[in-house]
Design a binder for these strands. Structure first.
Lengths: 150, 150
DNA sequence: GAGATATTCGAATATTATTCAACTAAATAT
DNA sequence: ATATTTAGTTGAATAATATTCGAATATCTC
């Protein structure tokens, strides 16, 4: 047994997928070459960043979803983007925004459970010196990444 | 000119993509048939919900991103899930969660601009009788849907 | 309206996914 | 422990699909 699933999940999270031109051709009743041309244009223009999979996150051990609002302090106070760019590299971070309001950053985090969440936030508070953070835990997800669930 | 791009964007938002088995095979140095088998297993188990595109949302006229926290009132107070399920159908809604804390719902909304956002929230407040809502506007997105931007 | 540029699209080709059947590993029952 | 079933791996053959190419058409620019 090779335990390939985790590797596939890691790859599919960000990419390694491609459009189904033939299916779209049937759906839109257009020649596949025309669609091919239009899709390549969207890619070239940068409008399409990636083709990826959306998961049932409970089933891949990332069932706990938290939205975290963050205040930075000290040296990081002035440049939230630097911290954000670094946090963006974390595979548990689904999204990160610099935002308006009482907090500078908004993170959507996916962890296995509340324990993993707690360890994560502790380590980041320490590392980046968040002066304050406010977490909102998802109780039920109805839609994510434009994909409806159930 | 057929103006196919908007149709493609609508389809790619939720699906109409597929894994690139040959590319993965090269990357992981595994036979493509083995990967094919493992991917089908993930699909059958429901772990993979969909294959879709991630966009540079500015370039597709959805550059304004808002996180909206919502309190329900009246008849909708007790059953946030019913409202959430309905809102989930809206193509501008990227994600919607029932959540902990002072608000019942958390929506991630993508609109063209602040005007479109304002029209959207006005119409929903009216329709569902939100008793209160708090919006956080994204100033800069560093990562979305697990895909790093820039 | 002439010339350049962008888009459409059918036919041919190249690439890739999928099926199949044999084999191997793992789990379960005896 | 070992027989038996079930799950996972893999190469060869096939089916399906993306991609290239060239020609025609539409759109934009001056």
């Amino acid at each position: 047994m090779k335990n390939i699933a985790p590797k596939l999940i890691a790859l599919f999270k960000q990419g390694f997928c491609t459009p189904q031109i033939a299916k779209i051709a049937k759906k839109l009743k257009e020649p596949s070459t025309t669609l091919h041309y239009n899709i390549k244009q969207l890619e070239k223009s940068g409008a399409i960043k990636s083709y990826k999979a959306v998961f049932d996150y409970k089933k891949i051990g990332e069932g706990h979803c938290t939205y975290i609002l963050i205040n930075l302090s000290g040296e990081n106070y002035g440049n939230p983007e630097v911290v954000a760019k670094e946090l963006a590299k974390d595979p548990k971070v689904e999204s990160i925004d610099v935002c308006t309001g009482d907090y500078e950053l908004l993170i959507k985090l996916r962890t296995k459970d509340i324990d993993e969440y707690y360890e994560w936030i502790k380590s980041k508070v320490k590392k980046y010196g968040f002066s304050k953070s406010y977490s909102i835990t998802s109780l039920k997800q109805l839609k994510t990444e434009f994909v409806e669930l159930n």
